[in-house]
């Protein structure tokens, strides 16, 4: 059973999550034929867009703006890559972007980024897809990722932890409600967070090698 406060919290998060999606003109740009150079610009623009959307979403997470300003930046810096992977997983698994996700996948695969990075990334998206997460679960898991108290340079870990716990609690309840026959669902979602951390570490190497090439 959800409390009135939890229902309201969930509503807020969903409203913000739905409002802050990748712009549709990205989808129309996807069908354009791009040269290798344009492809590079396109993918970096898309990454920037991802971060801007993430910040807009985060600003509206109830309680986030009450945190210390520098802690807010540290949280966003620490989680941006992980949150981007989560959004991308949702994008690919739910075939968003007007159904042009196949074109996008091709574009990423032909971007010049080494396949040693690309393949595990798409396997991760696929494994997340197998969990059949609802939109609400994606949104809450993203909030949980952003509100991770043990990021670098966080001064007031306690306040972050408190906030994260309230979302973890709602996510756990939602998992039970959405997947009554799978009591392990919540634990599996949390397990994916560990994988996300690994990706975040590899992402720096990936971007570096891409730049060099």
């Amino acid at each position: 059973e959800f409390t009135q406060e939890e229902i309201q919290l969930l509503q807020y998060v969903m409203e913000s999550y739905n409002k802050n999606r990748l712009p549709q003109d990205l989808a129309s740009k996807l069908v354009d034929n791009l040269s290798t150079d344009d492809n590079f610009v396109f993918l970096t623009t898309m990454a920037t867009s991802h971060v801007q959307i993430l910040v807009e979403f985060t600003k509206k997470i109830p309680g986030f703006q009450t945190l210390d300003h520098e802690d807010q930046i540290a949280l966003l810096k620490g989680s941006a890559v992980e949150a981007m992977f989560l959004r991308s997983a949702e994008l690919f698994n739910k075939k968003l972007l007007d159904g042009h996700t196949d074109v996008l996948e091709g574009r990423i695969r032909n971007s010049g980024i080494s396949h040693e990075y690309i393949n595990p990334m798409f396997s991760f998206y696929k494994s997340l897809g197998e969990l059949k997460m609802t939109e609400e679960e994606y949104a809450l898991l993203t909030a949980v990722v952003i509100l991770t108290p043990d990021r670098q340079y966080i001064k007031d870990k306690e306040s972050v932890e408190k906030l994260q716990e309230s979302f973890l609690h709602i996510l756990e309840k939602l998992c039970k409600q959405h997947h009554p026959n799978n009591p392990q669902h919540f634990a599996r979602l949390l397990g994916r967070l560990t994988e996300l951390r690994t990706f975040s570490h590899h992402h720096t190497d990936m971007v570096m090698s891409w730049r060099v090439s």
């Binding site: 971060v51 801007q52 910040v55 807009e56 600003k59 930046i73 810096k77 720096t204 971007v207 570096m208």
Partner: peptide, 22 residues
């Protein structure tokens, strides 16, 4: 990596200040 992190931080700071708000 520090270069890309500065880029990331700049985007975050600008967005937090509402530069990309509707």
């Amino acid at each position: 990596s520090s270069g890309s992190n500065i880029g990331l931080e700049a985007i975050i700071r600008k967005a937090l200040m509402g530069k990309y708000d509707e």
